[in-house]
């Protein structure tokens, strides 16, 4: 039986009169890559911000591995990690120091840090730049480091907010390979507005528009339900005039 890692119940976020996320109900299963797809302002990042405690929940709740975001946020923080939309690295620290720093603030022992660092170096091919300062890395490598910083703590759930935003096509494909390799090892919630990205990476896709979840399913199911051959056409059909 598939284990539920995240369950949201009427998860809502309002900024004054504006509702950014409106009664969102969804479940994310263990080991899957779950895509939150939508145009800018659809509510994807706000959803991630609520799930990670970066934004207070206005209404409803979310449960991550049995812990309520409202009541047990500190427990959730220990078992999750995030790679934010903007590259979040310490510029004057080397790649290795950035990873060790994150490991320490999550309370990992020296031995755990060493083991996880070696594993992350291998899976993300960071060995060659391990002694390079983060600020001297290209955009693609900085994003790779940002994801590595989310992985070093060996989280059960990882949030990737627009992981390939602003990257060139080669850097994007490189990151896709890395994210794909994580499938089954860790539960990933990925936000993006790139249709080819969700199709290539995600097991299931939630399409969001104006804070509402419009559809949920695999890429094939979404295409089938709309009778379209391309995911782009299916997306336009589902979102319709609510896209912007």
């Amino acid at each position: 039986m598939t284990k539920t890692m995240i369950k949201t119940t009427d998860l809502t976020k309002r900024f004054g009169d504006k509702t950014a996320v409106d009664h969102l109900n969804m479940e994310v299963y263990e080991g899957e890559i779950f895509g939150l797809l939508g145009v800018n302002g659809a509510g994807k990042t706000t959803t991630i911000r609520m799930l990670t405690g970066l934004s207070a929940i206005t209404e409803g709740d979310a449960v991550v591995m049995g812990h309520s975001v409202r009541n047990a946020l500190q427990e959730i923080k220990k078992i999750t990690n995030i790679s934010p939309q903007e590259t979040a690295v310490a510029g004057n620290l080397t790649v290795r120091e950035n990873l060790d720093f994150i490991a320490k603030i999550y309370g990992l022992s020296q031995e755990e840090t060493r083991k996880n660092r070696e594993s992350v170096f291998r899976s993300l091919s960071l060995d060659e730049v391990q002694n390079q300062k983060a600020k001297t890395l290209s955009g693609g490598w900085q994003r790779r480091l940002s994801i590595a910083m989310a992985l070093i703590t060996d989280p059960k759930v990882i949030f990737l907010d627009e992981p390939t935003l602003g990257l060139d096509v080669l850097a994007r494909r490189e990151l896709w390979k890395i994210i794909s390799s994580l499938k089954g090892k860790v539960t990933i919630i990925l936000t993006t507005h790139y249709l080819d990205e969700v199709e290539a990476l995600c097991d299931r896709i939630a399409i969001m528009a104006k804070g509402h979840m419009k559809a949920l399913g695999t890429a094939a199911e979404l295409k089938q339900s709309t009778g379209k051959e391309k995911l782009e056409d299916a997306f336009v059909e589902i979102v319709g005039g609510d896209g912007v």
């Binding site: 979040a88 310490a90 603030i105």
Partner: peptide, 17 residues
């Protein structure tokens, strides 16, 4: 100004830290 503190806000770090 960078997203660095946002990453830390999502970590187990507390205000006094």
């Amino acid at each position: 100004s960078s997203a660095f503190l946002m990453r830390l806000y999502a970590s187990p770090m507390k205000g006094t830290d």
